[in-house]
Design a protein around this nucleic acid. Structure first.
Length: 425
RNA sequence: GGAGAGGUGGCCGAGCGGCCGAAGGCGCUUGCCUGCUAAGCAAGUGAGGACUUACGUUCUCCGAGGGUUCGAAUCCCUCCUUCUCCGCCA
């Protein structure tokens, strides 16, 4: 959520920011008009309320003095004012609702460090790590490696659940579990607190992190309870301190969690249709940090680094890019994406997205802390995948495949696989 | 699912139609005192909005939303949530 005061004070800046994000800057004008209307009504209503309070107080006094005539006169007048107040309050409510609706659909303001650009083509590459393997045989995509081993089943998955689902079996199923354990263990060692989270949340939780109201189409919900299947553990980890005042000495708070993630992928027909790159349900280990205004960008570097270290430990070639304004996620001010090398795509593919949401979620979820002057400020939140487990599994299968169809188990995962070094059919 | 009891400021906790933004305590801040620390004494200390250059004025908020009333933390309704007991269950 953007700060209405900031919007009022410097609308030109916000308009510019929205333009770089391909948002319609006219929306800002609309908000300002509503805001002016709102303040006008508040002033009038408050005057009337002050008057009513005065009259009401006098009623008590007059009654105790036995002056019932004067009292009933004031009661009548107060009643009349009460009706006027109600009218103003009703209009105020409408105006506020309209303003909040627009405001809650507006994305965060990009950081000055975020490069301006229209779409993903203008993202900036920061670094490349590792070298894509040159195969001495024809490398297979994971949607062949898995099924050929008899451990990845798309047909039965669609029989059960429809398209964009996968059933994993045997050593590949275990490999995925190994990845989860490896990632969590590594993050715990680096100072994160493991959290086991609900996979279903209430509407207001989805709102707090910015998933709603704008992206309702993307979410799976249940009726009649109006619960949502989480699209990422971020929803839970970043909402866990909703409406709290956090102790300054607790910062930074570092959370990591494994969860299944559920996404409708409504807008991605025809995209990544093969394999398990884009499915409705996938596993992910998520990192979330809570910190102060002064430290959040510093913490973003750390968080991204923590995600990168998983890729390094798995010896998977990747590159790190910085998203431009046009490609930035809804709540983010600055985002690094990590992209892993996938032989089947002959390209780097997103496997982690690490963002500084600054005070955007803090304001939405009303999460604050007392600064050194004892004043309340909104917390800064950060989130990143550490990593998308399903895609990491794909990367391992494809990058570690052998000519005979087997897959070598990366060194760091072997202790989680009962010492198995190779997966055979 | 059934029965009952709760949700009040950073925390604990009183209040159950007007004198309540809310006693008291803890915590915190400042001052005094004390070799230091602790203890003690005194004062201050909720959040959000609107108006104002400012001093300040004013409104709203006692889980959330409606209602009754001249007036609601207090009465009524709905919802969320916590706890206890019963039932069911991985």
């Amino acid at each position: 959520m953007l700060d209405i005061k900031e919007l009022r004070n410097d609308p030109a800046k916000i308009k510019k920011a929205m333009e770089t994000r391909n948002e319609n800057p006219e929306t800002i004008e609309k908000i300002l008009i509503l805001d002016e209307k709102r303040r006008e009504i508040i002033q009038k209503a408050d005057e009337l309320k002050a008057l009513r309070n005065q009259l009401s107080k006098s009623v008590a006094k007059l009654k105790s003095q036995g002056n019932h005539e004067e009292a009933s006169k004031n009661i009548a007048e107060s009643k009349n004012i009460g009706n006027q107040i109600k009218e103003f309050d009703d209009v105020l409510k409408e105006v506020e609702e309209e303003q909040n609706t627009i405001l809650s659909h507006l994305p965060n303001i990009p950081s000055e460090q975020t490069p301006v650009g229209k779409d993903e083509n203008e993202n900036v590459e920061i670094l490349k790590w590792g070298t894509p393997r040159v195969f001495s045989f024809e490398a297979k995509p994971h949607w062949e490696i898995g099924p050929d081993l008899g451990m990845m089943d798309f047909e039965r998955a669609s029989k059960l659940s429809g398209s964009r689902f996968v059933v994993l079996k045997s050593q590949i199923a275990r490999l995925e579990r190994a990845l989860i354990s490896f990632m969590l263990d590594t993050h715990i060692e680096n100072g994160y607190t493991e959290v086991n989270v609900p996979f279903m949340v209430k509407r207001e939780t989805m709102y707090a992190t910015g998933q709603l109201p704008k992206f309702e189409e993307e979410a799976y919900k249940t009726t009649p309870d109006d619960m949502f299947l989480i699209p990422t553990a971020e929803v839970v980890l970043a909402g866990i301190h909703k409406d709290e005042i956090i102790e300054f000495s607790d910062f930074p708070i570092n959370y990591c969690a494994y969860s299944a993630c559920f996404r409708r992928e409504a807008g991605s027909y025809g995209k990544d249709v093969r394999g398990m790159i884009r499915v409705h349900q996938f596993e992910k280990v998520e990192l979330v940090k809570y910190t102060t205004k002064e430290k959040s960008y510093e913490e973003l570097e750390k968080l991204t680094n923590d995600a990168e270290n998983i890729l390094k430990a798995l010896e998977l070639p990747y590159r790190k890019i910085q998203l431009c304004t046009g490609d930035l996620g809804f709540g983010s001010a600055l985002t690094y994406d990590l992209e892993v090398w996938l032989p089947s795509y002959n390209a780097y593919k997103e496997i982690s997205s690490c963002s500084n949401d600054i005070d955007f979620q803090g304001r939405r979820a009303n999460m604050r802390y007392r600064n050194k002057e004892n004043k309340l400020e909104y917390v800064h939140t950060l989130n990143g995948s550490g990593l998308a487990v399903g895609r990491t599994l794909v990367a391992v299968l494809e990058n570690y495949q052998n000519e005979d169809g087997s897959v070598t188990v990366p060194e760091v995962l072997r202790k989680y696989m009962g010492g198995i070094e190779r997966i055979f059919g």
